[in-house]
Design a protein around this nucleic acid. Sequence first.
RNA 1: CGGGGCGUGGCGCAGUCUGGUAGCGCGCCUGCUUUGGGAGCAGGAAGUCGGGGGUUCGAAUCCCUCCGCCCCGACCA
Length: 578
Amino acid sequence: MRWSRLHIPTLRDDPAEAEVVSHKLLLRAGYVRQLSAGLYCYLYLAKRSLHKVEQIVREEMDRIGAQEIYTPELHPAEIWKESGRWDAIGGDMFRLKDRWGREHCLGMTEEEVVTFIARGELRSYKQLPQIWYQIQAKFRDEPRPKSGLMRVRRFTMKDSYTFDMDKAGLDAAYDRHHAAYCRIFDRCGLQYLPVEAHSGPMGGSESCEFMVPSPAGEDWIVECPESGYRANLEKAVTEPRPPEAPDPCGDAGPEEFPTPGRKTIEEVAAFDGQPASSHIKSLLMVAGNRPLMVLLRGDDQLNELKLAQRLEGELARPAHPEEIRGCLGAGAGYIGPVGADGLELLADSALEGRRNMVAGANKDGFHLRGVTPGRDFTAGYSDLREAREGDSDVESGSPVRCRKAIEVGHIFKLGDKYSKSMGLSVLNEQGRSVTPVMGSYGIGIERILTGAIEQGHDEAGMALPASIAPFEAVVTPVNVKNDAQRKVAEVLYDQMGRLGVDVLLDDRYERAGVKFKDADLIGIPYRVTVGRRVSDGLVELSERKTKRSENVTIGKLAAMLKRRIADAMPKAGAGGSA
RNA sequence: CGGGGCGUGGCGCAGUCUGGUAGCGCGCCUGCUUUGGGAGCAGGAAGUCGGGGGUUCGAAUCCCUCCGCCCCGACCA
């Protein structure tokens, strides 16, 4: 392609609305333009780059025997009602009515649609297993789109779905996807980590997220370098940190003391001199219609997903102030487990074995000291707290650390949630009707590009991996008015094109500095500079990432560059783990 | 949905407090010069000051209202 004919609207200044690096660079380098909040137009460079990502994804999906299909983005409400998700999903789903008033939605994911297809087609165990995938637009009415392409309302997803006769088949399909995803992210040149994740409303038993560590990420991952444990924060299980002060001795039992006006743990801790870790945090929650009390160490936070798990999937909400007073006769700052008769008490395991702690007295203006779990109240223990940096790893006992990351992929073992609710069954070898088990596997195409930019950039702009950069090389004649330079540039451009190099010719009538800055900004991995030295039969080859350059004989350039690019191409199995 | 910020030629911004003919840098167009890291000179085009309503002799500026975008939080398949 000839740059002079392309629309690559690079900007000299950072756009005011962009905060994160990838967002700034995507705008500055002329990859994208914003249509409205969370909606982006992909210009030529973005489209080329994303197309390369999609091709890598296709190749690796095909390699595990997946079949590419396409299903509409617009879905009738009926199938979502069958699975139960029409009601289970809240405002995140775009819903609309057609002219007859029939309800529809824009697909956020496609379990219902593929199950609809499958139940109409699959009859026999002989037809299984199946792996279907597509690369297609997904819509989510995000409450707060942000960070450029990171969190948007329309994005491109590769989503695949597997159908197997049994758990063993699903396990195999899941493992093959895991391997395919590693190959994909390796080939896209990403540093990434597979982590244990929470399945959420998607359902199912097991899930794994593929995370690209980056300060711009929105998820937290918890990891132990010692044991190799890695999990999403919302799923992570750790051993609590030791309390800041040892528990006081003695068996005196709870003793009331006045704490007027001190409601928060911090205020009471500052008042009574005991650290937060010696306090019991008491939260009144409501699950369905029944109130229950959740107990945590004063310096821990409740992980609501873990609580929901403990309640067998039921979501609990914090009680309203009137409910708290009605239930316990005191305000939120003064409630506690002692004497909270009739309430179900759920305690975090960090409280097990502790003695003589401080808790609310269920009486405004008073707390209790000397509260010992198990003696002064009876609770069921389970893991309810959010993991924190510095907690101990369950296996190795070493401290865990937390990092921010971008979720680029997520794979789920769904089980029979959709096949059962939507009536998919096949006959097995014995002629009996069996419900197949399903898996579902997603990759955010744009997030791969975003992650690659976040991980590969400098002051000058993007430094993209050769596999997903919009072009592999650019040929830059320094002075287009110089016939010799222009001619050599044209020849090299032709030669490289014939060798299959994805090359761009910067034939613009611009000064050299402008061309160099633009090439650096849009992140082309190699630049061939055709300048004064052509008279000596030499051109310059420079690498974007390392900024290294060397003089090369004109006749040898094309073949040499071809080899260079092949060597630089990120490869599967190269171990892109961060 | 709560809190904060912003909206002025394509981009980045000043002007708003204290009302009085809309400005700067970059970009764009034409010409000449220049040509290895965002050139110089000369000339030029381009703005319903986010929309609507009000106050005023007069509104980018003051008041009311609506809309949009960004950030923090809530939320989040």
